[in-house]
Design a binder for these strands. Structure first.
Length: 276
DNA sequence: TTTGGTGTTTCGAG
DNA sequence: CCTCGAAACACCAA
C-alpha cells in the first residue's frame, strides 16, 4: 500500500512529530518476524540507548539513523503504519513493535498483515545498495531514464514496479503514470519512442509529486488503508484518474476504463488512450 | 460461511 | 536475464 508519496508523508510526520534528537529508552517486540533475523532480546539490547540523528526515505524504506553506526530500516509493505503516541495509551493488537522514547511517548509499528519489517543493521547498504534511482532526485535525468528504458526488453508495468529499476513506484502510481503518458502497461520498454519515454519520465515525477503534495493516497476505510504517522488519511485519492476506476469513463476521452492483469498485478487502463 | 481479492517483496523453478 | 507462481498474513466485500 504505501508507495513513495505515502512513505515520504510518514517521514515528514515523524520529523514534525519531534523524533530527531530523541533517545530510545526501551523496546517491546510482540511479533518476532517484524524485526527480521534478530531475537527480541538482541533487538531491544541494541536499540536501547540509541539517539536519533536523522529520519529519511530511500525508495519505500523509512530510515532512522542513530548517532552510533546503527540504522533502523523500516519497510511498511502492505499494511504497516508508524505512529507516535503517548506511552499511556493502551496498546492495540496490531502493534507488533513498540519503541519507547525519552519523552513519555512511543514510536509504534502497527501492521495488520504482518508483512512489514523493522531491520536494525550497521550495514544498511546490503539492503539499500541494490535499489534503482530516486525518481524525484535532481540527478535522475530524462536522458538517464531514456537510456535505461531502452536497455530493457520487459513489459512497462512489471519493469516500473521493479525497485531495482526505479525506486518507489507501486501499483497505484504506475497505473496513473502510464495513463498520463498514454502508454500501455504491456508495451515493451525498449520499443518506447524517445518522445514517449520523456512523457513517461515527466508523468512519473508528476504523479509522485502530486501524491506527496497531498500527503499520500488513502482508499477505503479498511485496516490496511494508509494513514500517516499523525494518523491522518492522505488527500490524493481525488486526483487518481484511472486506478480502481474500472467501468468509469476516462477523464480524457470518455471511454470506459478496463481492468486487466499484467504480471499478476491488476492494472487499470483506458483502451483508447493506451494502445497495446 | 466461504471465497477471492488486496496497495509489497522475495524466492525458486523453468 | 526474464517470467511465472507461491508464500508471508489479516481483513473485507461479495
Amino acid at each position: 500500500m504505501p508507495e513513495l508519496p505515502e512513505v515520504q508523508t510518514v517521514v515528514n510526520d515523524l520529523i514534525a512529530g519531534g523524533l530527531i534528537g530523541k533517545t530510545i529508552c526501551g523496546a517491546d517486540v510482540f511479533w518476532n518476524k517484524s524485526i527480521g533475523n534478530l531475537t527480541s532480546g538482541e533487538f531491544s539490547e541494541t536499540i536501547t540507548g540509541q539517539i536519533i540523528m536523522t529520519v529519511r526515505r530511500r525508495a519505500k524504506y523509512i530510515i532512522i539513523d542513530f548517532k552510533s553506526a546503527v540504522h533502523l530500516l523500516i519497510h511498511l509493505r502492505m499494511s504497516g503504519r508508524l505512529i507516535i503516541i503517548p506511552t499511556s495509551v493502551e496498546t492495540n493488537k496490531h502493534e507488533h513493535v513498540i519503541l519507547h522514547l525519552n519523552d513519555n511517548r512511543d514510536l509504534r509499528f502497527h501492521d495488520t498483515r504482518k508483512f512489514g519489517r523493522m531491520i536494525l543493521t550497521d550495514k544498511p547498504d546490503t539492503i539499500l545498495g541494490n535499489l534503482g534511482p530516486e525518481p524525484l532526485s535532481a540527478d535522475f535525468t530524462v536522458a538517464q531514464f531514456k537510456t535505461i528504458l531502452k536497455s530493457k526488453h520487459r513489459q512497462l508495468k512489471p519493469l516500473l514496479l521493479d525497485q531495482t529499476f526505479i525506486a518507489g513506484l507501486g501499483n497505484i502510481y504506475v497505473d496513473e503514470a502510464l495513463w498520463e503518458a498514454r502508454l500501455h502497461p504491456q508495451k515493451i520498454a525498449a520499443t518506447v519512442s524517445p518522445k514517449k519515454a520523456a512523457d513517461l519520465y515527466n508523468a512519473i515525477r508528476y504523479v509522485l509529486q502530486q501524491g506527496i503534495d497531498n500527503q499520500g493516497t488513502s482508499l477505503g476505510n479498511g485496516q490496511s488503508n494508509f494513514t500517516s504517522a499523525e494518523n491522518q488519511r492522505g488527500n490524493n485519492a481525488g486526483n487518481l484518474k484511472i486506478f480502481r476506476k474500472t467501468g468509469h469513463l476516462c477523464p480524457r476521452c470518455q471511454t470506459k476504463i478496463e481492468r486487466i492483469i499484467v504480471g499478476q498485478r491488476s492494472s487499470h487502463i483506458c483502451p483508447k488512450c493506451q494502445k497495446a
